[in-house]
């Protein structure tokens, strides 16, 4: 009888302790592989420090020239002028130093994310089974709110650069994988057949035909990786990652509207510059250059 009454009251799905499971899992990792994660964390801190030291070593005006030269080579004089103005403005806001720290984080996270995501994308493009596993994982990684990554990252790597960087890498990987897979799968089947018909082995078809032809798409993926890295590196300021993110976070906690705006503006300048530059690198790929020649 009592069960019936229960049913009438309204039966509820019992509490499922997913959160506890995750906690237990992360605790287990911490207890058993703590030394491993510490080592990674130390490695990350040192690498980022090294990159940041290089970027911050010359006086800012030298960096302006470097950035402008890069912009001139990849995109043209408009971006070169724009970048000098933008970075000078940043310096005028006293944000250049933290911006270089942020840039160091973005570069390091971006490189790792590319190194992980491009091979994964190639694997997914070549095997339907691998794609069947990788795709849902990427969907999951991409839809989890970015803040949520920070919690396990902090548990494993403790507050600081390590946690911020790992969360950034995980957040930035999905578009790289997706666009690489898409790019390779979209290569005209007849091209691949042409390679096969002349007796080319699969590895050579991959390196000589599929990857070059997928390059515009892969480069779009790398562009996305860089942009997502930047946004996540800023968010990671909440867990102690240094740079513009930390400054913005401090401004938020102290309700300093002016400072928050200044550092926010610096993030925007850096974002625009990185976006244009990575798009410019994409145009260096042989396919893009061939097409550019044809329309010239």
């Amino acid at each position: 009888m009592s069960e019936l009454t229960l049913a009438a009251d309204g039966w509820q799905v019992p509490r499922i302790p997913v959160g506890e499971w995750v906690e237990t899992g992360v605790d287990w990792l911490e207890d058993n592989l703590g030394a491993f994660f510490d080592a990674i964390s130390t490695g990350i801190v040192e690498t980022v420090d090294a990159i940041a030291t290089v970027l911050q070593w010359p006086p800012p005006w030298v960096m302006f020239i470097v950035f402008a030269a890069l912009a001139l080579w990849l995109r043209g004089w408009k971006l070169a002028v724009g970048s000098v103005v933008g970075f000078a403005l940043m310096d005028g806001l006293d944000a250049f130093e933290p911006a270089m720290l942020t840039l160091a984080l973005v570069l390091f996270a971006g490189v790792i994310a590319v190194v992980v995501s491009v091979p994964l994308g190639i694997l997914a493009a070549r095997s339907d089974r691998a794609s069947g596993i990788i795709k849902p994982v990427m969907d999951f990684l991409q839809t989890v709110p970015p803040f949520v990554y920070l919690i396990p990252a902090v548990s494993l790597f403790s507050i600081g650069v390590g946690a911020g960087l790992v969360a950034t890498v995980v957040f930035a990987i999905p578009p790289g994988v997706r666009l690489t897979e898409l790019g390779i799968r979209q290569v005209d089947k007849e091209m691949v057949e042409a390679g096969e018909a002349f007796g080319s082995p699969p590895a050579r078809i991959l390196t000589g035909i599929q990857i070059p032809l997928a390059m515009p798409s892969i480069m779009a993926g790398i562009n996305q990786i860089i942009m997502l890295s930047l946004s996540m590196v800023v968010i990671a300021g909440m867990v102690g990652a240094p740079g513009l993110g930390a400054e913005v976070f401090e401004a938020i906690t102290r309700l300093q509207l002016g400072a928050g705006f200044e550092y926010g503006l610096s993030v925007v300048i850096l974002a625009i510059y990185l976006d244009r530059i990575t798009a410019g690198i994409g145009e260096l790929s042989p396919v893009s250059r061939a097409l550019a020649r044809a329309s010239a």
Binding site: E190, M191, A194, A197, F198, L213, P286, A290, L291
Partner: peptide, 20 residues
């Protein structure tokens, strides 16, 4: 693959030239 390299080559409907 060896047979294709040495004995048979192919011409395709949509040319299948490598654009790069």
């Amino acid at each position: 693959r060896e047979m294709r390299q040495n004995k048979m080559s192919m011409v395709f409907q949509h040319f299948a030239l490598f654009p790069h």
